[in-house]
Design a protein around this nucleic acid. Structure first.
Lengths: 229, 229
DNA sequence: TAACTTTGTTGCATATTTTAAATATTTCAA
DNA sequence: TTGAAATATTTAAAATATGCAACAAAGTTA
């Protein structure tokens, strides 16, 4: 899942504050200190969300917004408008410009995170059918909506990490997955434990899913692979 | 032609926003900041339309709606429901209550005006009969119209939050509901409390519904699930 | 006004999961 | 076949998540 968030905000304190809280929630903030830079960043990135201050040097928020909406590549990225003015006209304008939400400064970290998540969730909802799809492999069945795993119609109780691991394996059948890849994708980019940890979890997963034992194979010097066939 | 529109909305910013746009389009907005005031206003006015927020102090939107529909004088005035809760079910409920349209916050002024005009133009005259909408699950019975919960035919007094929580669980049986999802859909879009709040309410709900204790399960790292079976 | 009620937050005990370290086993090149 | 390196498994400590009582705040009712 795409976790990048572009923050276009000239006040460094606020930018780093936002950045800090986004990071803490597992997002990857990319900061731009003015409108030009923001648009420039957008040429190479495709973030899940843009947080845009209205008052910016070089190119203000309104202009940025307009350009965003003009270009097909960016027109669907949700935008949260930031503004110090609580005046309603600004808000209105924000919404008329096509923003998905707004926040007035000062805002609480909680509010920030809640809005970010809400907007991303809303924007993702259309593509959400994926989650409703079950993963079935032989007698194995993963129902993500219910967060349940069954083998041969019997529930297999898994811990959170085991579940993620299994799901990841199932979504990448036949591909070699290095321990680093697994750590990156399941534990997250800000995890700094040892790669041995992966082994332990794989081991435990295999123990709970004995019938699939032989499918989860170690690839020496690299990591693991779920063999399909 | 009657151009009065009563806006029942406690958020002053939103109220004045709506008011501003209505005025610009030639309507005459009358603002009420809570349900009581809204109903009181309705005794002397007979507007072409009511714009009603669901979450209101003193008397919430559901109650207002109910009273509107009970009284002959007001039962034919079209209503547009405003809600910060993004959940589909809430929307439906709004419509089942007899609303003519709904909007979720945040909305664009354009959208607002379009809907206002559309609803007024349509000027529907049907009388909406209130149909019973009960959720029954084993010995549990939720009468949404009466806002009552019974277990084994005995009344279970629940607070408003507990009620919403239970209802939400019942409407999403078997699905994992993250704390964020619950906050979003029950507490609403503008709520920024901690996710632990959910735990406390779940705990209180379970305590009042001991027989269903085992059905409301915690899913570690995520949230809760009402297990069906 | 005082007594209740509801709601949100915090703190702490408890339960569960995760991690790292220790130990056992396997693999494979020489 | 051997032994160092890699991997598997076990174990115990550490980290994390949860349940819920208790408090505080705000609203409501008598």
């Amino acid at each position: 899942m795409n976790k990048q968030v572009i923050v276009i905000e000239d006040d460094k304190d606020i930018a780093s504050l936002i950045s800090h809280y986004l990071t803490r929630e597992g997002f990857i903030p990319i900061i731009a200190y003015d409108g030009e830079e923001g648009l420039w960043q957008l040429q190479s990135k495709s973030p899940a969300l843009i947080i845009l201050d209205l008052m910016l040097p070089r190119k203000n928020g309104y202009e940025v917004m307009k350009q965003l909406k003009e270009q097909g590549a960016t027109s669907n990225i949700p935008v949260i408008i930031l503004t110090a003015k609580s005046d309603e006209i600004d808000r209105v304008l924000g919404l008329e410009l096509g923003a998905d939400d707004y926040m007035t400064k000062p805002f609480s970290p909680r509010e920030l995170i809640a809005r970010v998540k809400a907007v991303i969730r809303r924007a993702t909802r259309e593509l959400h059918t994926e989650k409703e799809k079950n993963i079935v492999y032989g007698k194995l069945e993963i129902n993500d909506l219910k967060h349940e795993v069954k083998y041969d119609d019997k529930m297999v109780p898994l811990t959170s990490k085991e579940y993620s691991l299994l799901k990841y394996f199932m979504e990448h059948r036949g591909i070699v997955l290095s321990r680093d890849t697994l750590l990156q994708n399941i534990w997250g980019y800000n995890y700094f434990g040892t790669t041995r940890t992966v082994d332990v979890h794989v081991s435990r997963l295999k123990k709970k899913l004995l019938p699939l034992n032989k499918h989860i194979q170690n690839i020496k010097d690299i990591g693991y692979k779920f063999i399909d066939e």
